[in-house]
């Protein structure tokens, strides 16, 4: 990943980014150590790592919510200063506004840009329909299931048409079947305009099934990027079927061999700390 090597536009480029937090008694906790990572325009990159390895931290750096202690962040070849306004961020936790109905939650992204309310609502309705919730616009978030809330969240982010999509274990809290359905929905929406995607997950299978590249991080503290695999599976993919593919299994085994040790390390650390 040397500079000048990339042919396509670099949507996100982290260069030696180190993230550190000040913790109790003035000690410094290094969450991510010298991470170098690039996401090309139109590329779907998944980051996989053991629990607590700073995957989300990396995403927050790309979003501009966190400033790295050292190193550089470039978004479409411009240094990132403040929030990354080209990115849409789908959070792990529910981040819908509980006092707004589903359709208002989706429309808000347009309304704050000054789009007239009638038009914003119309486009929000179209987005709700495309995530399969056309009839649920007037429900409040608490009246929706976890999976439905994620769909609304996707529509909320995508209606703004961001060039980069950051996703932090978006399907984490969902049950296995719903995760697969959501994965397929995500791929189907992504295929339409191929945004650059940075997708964080702890589920290696999900990562391989969805992404063009899978990046592995080591256990924290001071996690580093320790592996980068290209996923050669053809698109369009179906998450249910791609898992039966032989190549899928070969790649899964190869990556898992690396990931396994880190997972055990991370597990040992969290067990020791508890």
């Amino acid at each position: 990943m040397q500079a000048g090597e990339a042919a396509a536009a670099r949507a996100v480029a982290l260069d030696d980014a180190t993230v550190a937090f000040r913790v109790a008694d003035a000690r410094v906790y290094t969450a991510v150590d010298k991470a170098t990572l690039g996401v090309d325009d139109g590329e779907f990159v998944a980051i996989v790592g053991p629990t607590g390895c700073g995957k989300s931290t990396l995403l927050n750096v790309a979003a501009g919510l966190l400033k790295p202690a050292s190193g550089a962040v470039r978004i479409f070849d411009a240094a990132l200063n403040g929030l990354n306004h080209q990115a849409g961020y789908l959070f792990q936790a529910d981040a819908l506004f509980p006092w707004k109905t589903a359709i208002d939650n989706v429309a808000i992204g347009l309304e704050i840009k000054g789009v007239a309310r009638a038009e914003a609502l119309e486009r929000a309705q179209a987005w709700l329909t495309s995530v399969g919730l056309g009839a649920f616009g007037n429900r409040y978030p608490h009246m929706l299931s976890g999976g439905q809330r994620k769909r609304v969240g996707m529509a909320q982010v995508l209606i703004r048409d961001p060039r980069i999509l950051l996703m932090d274990e978006p399907f984490g809290p969902l049950d296995a079947q719903t995760r697969q359905i959501m994965g397929n929905l995500l791929l189907q929406l992504w295929t339409k305009d191929r945004k650059a995607v940075l997708f964080v997950t702890h589920d290696l299978e999900e990562a391989i099934a969805l992404a063009d590249r899978v990046v592995i991080m080591s256990a924290g503290p001071g996690s580093r990027i320790i592996g980068d695999w290209r996923v050669p599976l053809p698109r369009p993919r179906d998450i249910f079927e791609v898992r039966l593919d032989k190549e899928f299994h070969a790649l899964h085994r190869e990556i898992w061999n690396v990931l396994k040790d880190e997972v055990m390390k991370g597990y040992a650390q969290s067990a020791g700390a508890a």
Binding site: L65, H85, F97, G109, I112, R160
Partner: peptide, 16 residues
């Protein structure tokens, strides 16, 4: 915090 972060990422100004 999550709601505020989401609002910021959706592009809301301080006033919004």
């Amino acid at each position: 915090r999550g709601l505020v972060d989401n609002a910021r990422m959706l592009g809301m100004s301080e006033r919004q």
